[in-house]
Design a protein around this nucleic acid. Structure first.
Lengths: 221, 221
DNA sequence: ATTTTCCCTTACACCATTTGTAAGTGTTTT
DNA sequence: AAAACACTTACAAATGGTGTAAGGGAAAAT
């Protein structure tokens, strides 16, 4: 079941939330130490974060921004601040939904399900800057366009995406594709890189792969 | 700029919406013929749909459901129905957000931006019930698993998903794969269906395709 | 109960795609 | 100027996709 992390400093409200969510079958984790909240949440790997705004050490707005920059979501803000400007600010910072207290139990649950549904039906794609890559199938996505890379092309791109923005040596790429127990001429790597660059051009992804002479390759961006 | 399709039968409200959105730089398309709305919207390929609920021929709820089954989204419901049960129903049917009229202009725009931001960068997958399908590459997604179907297997599954839960005749499937100007033995369709069923089993998707003897096939769920 | 019809499955051969090798070219470094 | 490194294109072999053929099973018709 989905893991929901709650950032709420009012003890009574927190217990009530925990009760509602656990009755619904969710795994709940409540933040009680209000220092370095974004870091704590990152290590918890939540499926959804319920975030209050008025907190002791940091504003929920700051936390929201920090979570977003770490790619953690979805984030549902649940706060007593019911002014329109606060809602606009929260949404602007990247909150996925903004609800005000007091909130009807069924409404809260419906909004939570809504966010979970939207995120969990999505494939686990790895962000490559200007594109996304499915590590299972080597399917490359850019906007509404997509294409499937061949095994070799996909293996190379995956290695570069996973190590972005670090340089990946030719030796590491060769081992990634062919292992160490069979001899493949080094030129095969060059050829496959040329094929990959050509394929990337089909999605207008020019100059994504940068050559560092004598060291290896890296993904730009 | 993003294309927003509006389904609103009140002319004054519709004009006001168009004005607000165009001033913001959006491309707007307003539905004025209220028959077969889901089909019209599908051909428009919108980036977002603003949907009223009280409409002349069909309920916005039905349209929402139909759009969702065709993988069209996001959907922002904007309605005068402000009862909690209506909101819950809309979210249950798959609406991505539910706002009631009258709605503050800045709030509406913020919610629209919120949805657009969340969907751009995501591949356009069609919902198949227990799985999702990328119509470009025939990549099949189920949870964190994915695999790429062959052209024939993908073409068959796509047809079934797009017509779900309707029956698709063998003739329609054959025409989808081979057109009408070349003769392919009917058994080729049977063979490819067997191959597709075997591939689906690799993702534990048993019994997804139902045979209706003498009529055709349909997707379960 | 038997026959006919429809659907499914497996194997085979042909076609399309992927990929390592070979050879040539261009650029950068020594 | 020569050497080293990187890139590109073409070719042939290997691999995967797919229609056809043949056989079998189940449901419907007689």
């Amino acid at each position: 079941m989905a893991r929901i992390v709650m950032v709420e400093d009012d003890p009574l409200m927190r217990e009530e939330l925990i009760d509602i969510l656990q009755k619904e079958g969710f795994e709940t984790v409540a933040i009680t130490d209000f220092h370095d909240i974004a870091l704590q949440i990152a290590t918890l790997a939540p499926d959804l974060v319920i975030l209050d705004i008025n907190l002791p050490e940091q504003s929920g707005f700051e936390i929201c921004k920090s979570l977003k920059s770490k790619g953690i979501g979805p984030i549902l803000v649940l706060t007593s601040r019911d002014k329109l400007q606060d809602e606009l600010h929260g949404l602007y910072l990247g909150a996925d939904d903004y609800l005000t207290k007091p909130c009807n139990r069924d409404r809260l649950l419906a909004r939570i399900q809504n966010l979970l549904r939207r995120y969990e039906g999505q494939p686990s794609l790895i962000d490559g800057g200007s594109f996304s890559l499915d590590p299972n199938t080597f399917t490359l996505y850019k906007g509404s366009q997509s294409l499937v890379l061949s095994a070799n092309e996909g293996g190379i791109l995956l290695a570069l995406v996973q190590n972005r923005p670090e340089i990946v040596s030719k030796r590491a790429l060769s081992e990634r594709l062919w292992g160490t127990d069979q001899y493949i001429d080094e030129n095969a790597l060059q050829v496959n890189l040329t094929r990959l660059r050509k394929t990337l051009r089909q999605l207008n992804l020019e100059n994504q792969i940068e050559t560092i002479r004598g060291q290896g390759y890296r993904l730009r961006g």
